[in-house]
């Protein structure tokens, strides 16, 4: 079964994604270098921006937007799993 009739992402779409990613990168750098003293919020902000970038890479560059639902289910499961590991380890260290 060969790669036929599959969706082709245009060069323009790829460039738009790239532009958004660059924008987000500079945003996160400026917040860090020039931003106010965010303390613990700084990690949250940085992670939020990083996750937005990651989603863009996965959704557009990696073609996830156009893949069958099963791929999205699988990826979601992996993320949930990892989130659970983070949560339980956090609970341990927080409540010791």
């Amino acid at each position: 079964m060969e790669n036929k009739n599959e969706h082709i992402t245009s060069y323009k779409e790829h460039f738009s994604t790239y532009a958004a990613l660059i924008l987000l990168t500079f945003m996160t750098v400026f917040i860090s270098v020039f931003g106010a003293d965010l303390r613990t919020l700084s990690v949250a902000t940085a992670m939020l921006i990083a996750t937005t970038k990651a989603t863009a890479v996965a959704y557009y560059f990696m073609h996830m937007k156009y893949e069958p639902k099963i791929y999205k289910v699988m990826l979601a499961t992996v993320i949930i799993l990892f989130a659970f590991f983070m949560m339980m380890i956090t609970i341990d260290y927080l409540t010791r």
């Binding site: 996160t28 860090s32 270098v33 700084s42 940085a46 992670m47 990083a50 970038k53 990651a54 890479v57």
Partner: peptide, 11 residues
Amino acid sequence: IYLFPLFYLIH
């Protein structure tokens, strides 16, 4: 994308 802020942008 995750390594960068975690090591370079801690402030």
